[in-house]
Design a protein around this nucleic acid. Structure first.
Length: 590
RNA sequence: GGCCCAGUGGCGCAGUCGGUUAGCGCGUCGCCCUGUCACGGCGAAGGUCGCGGGUUCGAGUCCCGUCUGGGUCGCCA
């Protein structure tokens, strides 16, 4: 059908007869001579139609007509080269034009110079993806898949597909449910991740598994969250934490090297969860920003200021913030209130070092003296404080830190920063998490109930659950969690003990994931793994602002697909057949 | 579930303090044009101002409700 790809034509093709096929990206009709930018997957080439029959035929071409053109490659007349495009030195003089199919007037311009709303683009995503930028993103994602597969293949991994119609797994998010026609009243769940299956594959002796796996979670969506998303899922036998982290680094390094032209310094630094929370107020710190929180609990241990008589007092400095107008300081209060805080206390450090602001008047003379130094502030800075329960206060300061970074332009947007967060707690107090499905104990698993304690804790974690550390790791890039995993429990006694701490009875455990416990009875190998948030990684590599840009057919915030119109009502017949309304479920009722 | 922002020809936007015929750019259609490359010139068509109610002599504009989209907090191990 065609002899060449349009985007590959160069000066060396001059004089050759070629046949191209593609779309009319743009036309410039001068009457006697007509220029067409012909676009195919490889790029764009200019086609020229001159006088007479050819010009006549080309007059009727419109945007996005699908055409086939035969002609001769010629050097452009001197001075008419276009340096903007790769084929800019040549053009194709057409002597044959075949319209393969016509296009209706477009619902939105495909011109990359213009901004178009997202909803209309998603409704006609097949047009949106014709835009070279969008198309390049799709191809880049394909490359990312290829690179990851190459690294894993090279290291002896086996790609295995796991079910998408399965049983609800213990992962905390809400499941998407599918009625089982053959067992009315019983339901499949779509997997939130292949977590349990990959562990079964380790018991099965695969030793090294991976999968580019679709996962489903029925929660509210965000710019960086979709109801269905993709993980690069990996599990390995006979490994410890360093082995999995090393494997993860090789994949990430290959991706960034090939797709971003960035060589990640190895090894990627590690930060303990406790340090991350203490110094940055988050478990996914953006280390492009060097700003750190200061802990002032001890400094204010005898303070007369009521607000600072709290289990934790901390601060973060806004460089140059002393010069903010009052209005802006008020805006910070609003900002904090929107995050559920009472406000954001502040002290302004004058150029002469004197402190001002409401807080400065309430603290003791002695406290004023060394405060700037203790908080790490310079003259002209603003110090923000948070006091209260450590977790909440740090979270507020961490968010403030990032807001300061953004608003003060302290973040180098072209930089990449990677860090592993390790030594997270194994358990957290259940009071805040509304996790009803996973046991009735005071404690809930921070990762999931199959995460092993670290070697230091594995023999006595139950004696101090709040302090026990998990053999788990998250990798963070520029403040985004792009992957995480853990070493799993492979000893039945340890697993029983974890369930006991979580308040999960043996009966409950049997009911929910007896199949995994059964499997662990048959000589399970020590194993662990990691899962990468594939959409998020592609988003970062593509420099996109939204996951929707790196997903071929994404959904909107309401879980709606503007293209297909899903979800959609079903007919009464479908409803009856699916067994959605079955009165008496078989098997054990909830 | 809470909060913030937006919704005006196909697309992107303007519309002042509530006032008479709702503008602009792009696109579309017609005519013209032999070196453009986001071509250019002339002309034309195209609107239930998201939807419902209210206030008013009068509502795109103000009020209430609602829907949709985006962001954010909760939520998402």
């Amino acid at each position: 059908m065609r002899s060449h790809d349009a985007g590959t034509l160069r000066a060396e093709h001059a004089g050759q007869t070629v046949t191209l096929a593609g779309w009319v990206a743009r036309r410039r009709d001068h009457g006697g001579v007509i220029f067409i930018d012909l676009r195919d997957a490889s790029g764009i080439a200019q086609v020229v139609f001159r006088e007479g029959e050819m010009a006549q035929a080309a007059h009727r071409l419109r945007a996005e007509y699908c055409v086939r053109v035969a002609g001769t490659v010629a050097m452009r007349p001197e001075g008419n080269e276009n340096r903007e495009i790769a084929t800019g030195t040549i053009e194709v003089t057409a002597d044959l034009l075949e319209v393969l199919s016509e296009s209706a007037p477009l619902p939105f311009p495909l011109d990359e110079h213009l901004q178009v709303g997202e909803e209309i683009r998603l409704r006609h995503r097949y047009l949106d993806l014709r835009r070279p930028g969008q198309a390049a993103t799709m191809r880049m994602r394909s490359e990312a898949n290829r690179i990851a597969r190459a690294v894993l293949d090279d290291e002896g991994f086996v790609e295995v597909e796991t079910p998408t119609l399965t049983r609800s797994t213990p992962e905390g998010a809400r499941d998407f449910l599918v009625p089982a026609r053959l067992q009315p009243g019983s339901w499949y769940a779509l997997p939130q991740s292949p977590q349990l299956f990959k562990q079964l594959l380790m018991v099965a002796g695969m030793e090294r598994y991976y999968q580019i796996a679709r996962c489903y979670r029925d929660e509210d969506f965000r710019a960086d969250r979709q109801p269905e998303f993709t993980q690069l899922d990996i599990e390995m036998s006979f490994v410890d934490q360093d082995d999995v982290i090393g494997m993860g680094e090789r994949i990430v390094a290959a991706l960034w090297s090939e797709l971003a032209g960035y060589e990640i310094a190895s090894p990627i630094p590690r930060l303990s969860y406790a340090d991350a929370m203490g110094r940055y107020g988050t478990d996914k710190p953006d280390l492009r920003l060097s700003l750190e929180l200061a802990e002032l609990t001890v400094y204010f241990s005898d303070t007369p200021f009521r607000v600072f008589q709290a289990p934790y007092v901390g601060s973060v400095v806004m460089p140059g913030g002393a010069h903010q107008p009052r209005r802006q300081l008020d805006a910070w209060q609003e900002w904090a209130k929107q995050r559920g805080a009472k406000g954001l206390a502040y002290v302004l450090v004058g150029e002469d070092g004197t402190l001002s602001g409401p807080v400065a008047r309430n603290i003791a003379d002695g406290e004023r003296e060394g405060l700037a130094k203790a908080a790490g502030a310079e003259p002209g800075d603003c110090i923000f404080f948070a006091a209260g329960e450590a977790g909440e206060a740090r979270r507020l300061l961490g968010a403030a830190r990032e807001e300061i970074g953004r608003s003060c332009g302290l973040i180098d947007e072209s930089a990449w920063s990677f860090v592993w967060i390790v030594d997270a707690p194994l358990f957290e107090l259940a009071e805040y998490s509304g996790d009803i499905s996973m046991g009735a104990g005071r404690w809930t698993a921070l990762h999931h109930p199959f995460t092993s304690p670290t070697p230091d804790w594995v023999e006595h974690f139950e004696s101090d659950p709040g302090a026990a550390l998990a053999y788990a790791y998250d990798i963070v890039c520029n403040g985004n969690e792009i992957g995480g995993g853990s070493i799993r429990i492979h000893r039945a006694d340890v697993q029983q003990c974890v369930f006991a701490v979580l308040g999960i009875s043996e009966e409950d455990a049997r009911e929910k994931f007896g199949f995994l416990l059964d499997a662990l009875d048959y000589g399970p190998p020590p194993h662990g793994g990691i899962a990468f948030g594939w959409d998020r990684i592609c988003m970062l590599l593509a420099g996109a602002d939204s996951l929707r840009d790196v997903i071929a057919f994404p959904k909107t915030g309401g879980g709606y697909d503007p293209l297909t119109g899903a979800p959609a009502p079903i007919t009464a017949a479908q409803r009856a057949e699916a067994g959605v309304d079955a009165a008496k479920p078989r098997g054990k009722p909830e």
